[in-house]
Amino acid sequence: MSAQASEVPAKRKKVAFLDREATSVTEAFLQRLLVGVHTFLSNGLAVAGLSIILLLIAVAAFAPWIATHDPNLQNLSMALKPPSSVNWFGTDEYGRDIFSRIVYGSRVTLYIVTLVTITVGPIGLIVGTVSGYYGGTVDMIVMRITDLFLAFPGLILTLTFVAILGPGLEQAVLAIALTGWPAIARLARAETMTIRSSDYIAAARLQGASSLRIIFGSIIPVCMSSVIVRLTLGMASVILTAAGLGFLGLGAQPPTPEWGAMTSAGREYMLDSWWLVTAPGVAIMVVSLAFNLFGDGLRDVLDPKSK
């Protein structure tokens, strides 16, 4: 119908599904989603970001088929060989194939990013909305706790947690998650406070909705978009923090092929064998850039006001 057609840019080509009247809640939602996808796809950089992320996921999923060598197989006679047709990115000090290690390293990176995001997102969202909705004492206590976390630079706090928990991949994830949730909680709280006094929340209360129903049914859907954008943009810094921990030897332990740890190990050979640090360094840069571009594009779709 005309109402939908008039809202999207005129240059968009006609899609029958979008121009017809929705006949169910699901269909209305799908139409909305499709308009969002169109907006996203019209942003070239965001699409580039998404493509790199999809490539990363594909590489992680099919690592055994993509890798040309066993990532942990040592061959000292082949140590520190420059890039060639056999070892595309060269070999490291133990003669391991760097290309294969990078391919397997994508699994570690994705593992960290995913785990941190799915713990930080819901925790931050729930803590923030509950604290913002109830206000008063609850809000004060929760916000002083987040203040405490936000008072330290993220990496320093993460290092402290890792020092307490001990080095290792799981501990690194836990430490990054522990320092990540307060920022999300702050964001969700601020959003909640702006909408809590709105008429549609008052209307929901007048219908007899419980606080729990209001938080989950009315407030979280509104906060969700900015939290998703924030989480996506945060993924880049999660990658960098994880690489930083790996670099300091506090993240993934040898021989796990983690990009940060690989850069750290290659540091000693940097002057003669540049490929040891360059390859994982470029991988870290490209992937975190991709997450940033993707997050930016997502913000244009989900949160058009902040454009």
């Binding site: 209305a28 008429d199 549609y200």
Partner: peptide
Amino acid sequence: MVFQDPYGSLHPKHT
């Protein structure tokens, strides 16, 4: 109750 502003009284993400 019916509120004054129909732009603010309906949930923006609910059909």
